[in-house]
Amino acid sequence: MSMTILTVDDSRTMRDMLKLALSDAGFRVVQAEDGVHGLEVLRLEAPDVIVTDINMPRMDGYGFIKGVRSDDRHRAVPILVLTTESDAEKKDRARRAGATGWIVKPFDPVKLVSAIRRVAA
């Protein structure tokens, strides 16, 4: 029974790298390009974990997280944000928006996968 992970990032290169790391770990990956797209994808998909970037056009990560948490269907889904190690302010804002945890960039594929397994447990 493989888990489905939704990745939300405006950079295709980044999405592909996430997909590579996550598929290698045996997850099914669905992707979105920004917050608005992410919420659209969620109408059809029910991911087990969401990984999202912060800085995106149209709708940034904070808006996206709030959108997910206010949707009864998805409010229990763990959300991990991609952030830099030093950026306490961003982490804090993301958490206040309802993020479950964070992944430090540049991400280490092993740690990414273990963080996902940890929050999905």
């Binding site: 290169t13 980044m14 790298m17 961003k90 960039k105």
Partner: peptide, 9 residues
């Protein structure tokens, strides 16, 4: 804020 907010792999 986002000084290193790049795609670092």
């Amino acid at each position: 804020d986002d000084g290193m907010d790049g795609i670092d792999f």
